[in-house]
Amino acid sequence: MAIEALPQLTPKDFASDQDIRWCPGCGDYSILAQTKKIMPDLGIPREKIVFVSGIGCSSRFPYYMSTYGFHSIHGRAPAVATGVKVANPELSVWVATGDGDGLSIGGNHLVHVIRRNLDIKILLFNNRIYGLTKGQYSPTSELGKKTKSTPMGSVDNPLHPLSIAIGAEGSFVARSMDVNVKHLGEILTRAAHHKGTAFIEIYQNCNVFNDGAWEHVSNRETKDDTTLFLEHGKPMIFGKNRDKGIRLNGKMEPEVVQLGNGIKEDDLLFHDEKAAEPSLAFMLSRMRYPEFPEPMGVLRAVDAPLFEKGVHDQMKAAEAKNGRGTLEQLLNSGDTWVVQ
């Protein structure tokens, strides 16, 4: 039997015919480009891919992909995606969301989709600002942030996407950055191959309303000292000269140490993304500049049961036990009696 070879697609094949309407210079372009770039190598036919989004700049994403797409309503993309994936688990389902869409109005759905562990991929574009509504502070904006809605500075304590994802029992939790295209591509590919909900926080620059929000980790001069690239099984080393590391102190808290002077690599924390216990991953999710370098890469990647598989397995089990139900059986279920 001859098997028809799949045509080799290129990134261009994943571009839709719609004009892209993001502001020139927006970080979203890079995320779109990297997503299109990794798609051909996944070997999934275009028609089996669905991009779902909510509302916001990032949520225009599905319009620019030539796959199936659903631009839904504010915050609800994870719920729409859940319906799609449960209805047809064979589809590759992706969610594009932002810090406002995913963590504010849609925070509830995000937490629940992650803890259910559906096999969907969530790209959270974090620009720490409301862009589409023209510049109000978001749930990830820093305290004191001056925006149109906080002229005297924000008094809202921000939350941290990776901590939320790990707290919600995320089976795959990672971070990357719009400007680090190579790393972003690698992380997207890893997310795509993960069996379960893959949550990626992507640092994304809004050059119109919050330009430079990630300057501390993207600046060429300083980034080596302000970021920590995680590698499974490797010690946590960073710095321009690869001479700094992270270790646990006596109070089980992380601290930055200078290698040398008796401190060896073996004294450092070794990254274990597969650890069943998520406490170290949670600790990493809380490491922030300027006290710490900000972790990039996969914080956590563990196996966990898939929700949609559970649903379909129960259907199969019920069928195995009672047979496939028919209309006839349906009407005759329950206690019946005959009137002559």
Binding site: V50, V52, F70, S72, I73, R76, P78, A79, V80, A81, T82, G83, V84, K85, V86, A87, N88, L91, N108, H109, H112
Partner: peptide, 15 residues
């Protein structure tokens, strides 16, 4: 809201 939104997703996918 999620019940409604997921039903929409289910309908989009053909159920």
């Amino acid at each position: 809201i999620a019940a409604m939104a997921s039903a929409i997703g289910g309908a989009f996918a053909g159920d």
